[in-house]
Design a protein around this nucleic acid. Structure first.
Lengths: 140, 140
DNA sequence: GCACTTACATCGAAAATTGATATAGTCGCC
DNA sequence: GGCGACTATATCAATTTTCGATGTAAGTGC
């Protein structure tokens, strides 16, 4: 099992997977925040901070801007008066879904060109890839 | 073959694959430029522009800064007096390699926790993933 | 050798990000 | 039930990044 080569292949695959012909121009920080909110549901700013590569003031101002733009909403945390819970609005979720849909379309076009055997291999790897992600979340 | 789920799994995997505990603080644009230069060798600014999500003036100033910092070098293009060929210096390549090494180490720690069967599936998928990347480069 | 295009640079303004610091709520303890 | 330490988020000024508009100089076609 050549992990070095696996790493290289994923790195290279990502250069085509991540970049999308984007309708609206969001920077990387914004897209990452929207994605995290979509997965992690209502979350406090501090917890969101842990997954994003931003300092707290930058995240505060980004969240404020996205709230202005109606992509997310903040509700007071009922269990902690200092905090608020941030979650996507319908419109924010729409953006994440739309980007996802574009990726699915792009990937479908590629997968269609694979042989049936290759497709089977790829399909079989989905659970393993998912397992890797789970392990990463558990592993310190 | 559920491409939708494949897409989701890769998106989620990437949240742990991309982010690294970085020694030096480079932003996403910088890392992307360094990575592209490492793969695509000496390249003109305009061609580099195609893969990066920046406008030309931003890339010009980023390249100028990275040249100052000794991470890349510019040599005149012998075949075109207007252009110059940009390539990584040893020091620039060092950064890309170091980040790659961190990913390999991180991924190794995860792969070690898989069963032999899971590892075999993953190893088998490397070529297919690579094929997908090639197809993406060919596909318009 | 003259218009036209292409490759890159320059410049001022707008946006994003940061470090330092402030504010305000919470918790443990007596 | 109030004091001190801690935590969550906000604010502010300075820096960095990015952009749009435009310039310059080298190549290209006729």
């Amino acid at each position: 099992m050549d992990v070095d080569r696996l790493t290289t292949v994923i790195e290279d695959f990502n250069t085509i997977f991540i970049r999308l012909p984007s309708v609206r121009k969001f920077n990387f920080s914004t897209l990452s925040v929207l994605h995290t909110l979509d997965r992690r549901g209502p979350i406090r700013l501090t917890d969101l901070l842990a997954t994003e590569q931003l300092k707290q003031p930058a995240l505060t101002s980004l969240v404020a801007k996205l709230e202005q733009d109606g992509l997310l909403q903040r509700r007071p945390d009922p269990t902690d008066g200092r905090a608020s819970l941030i979650s996507l609005t319908r419109s924010g979720r729409q953006i994440v879904r739309s980007r996802h849909a574009h990726r699915v379309a792009k990937l479908t076009r590629l997968v269609d060109q694979l042989t049936p055997e290759e497709r089977a291999v790829l399909a079989g790897s989905v659970d393993v890839l998912n397992r890797l992600t789970e392990l990463a979340e558990e592993t310190p």
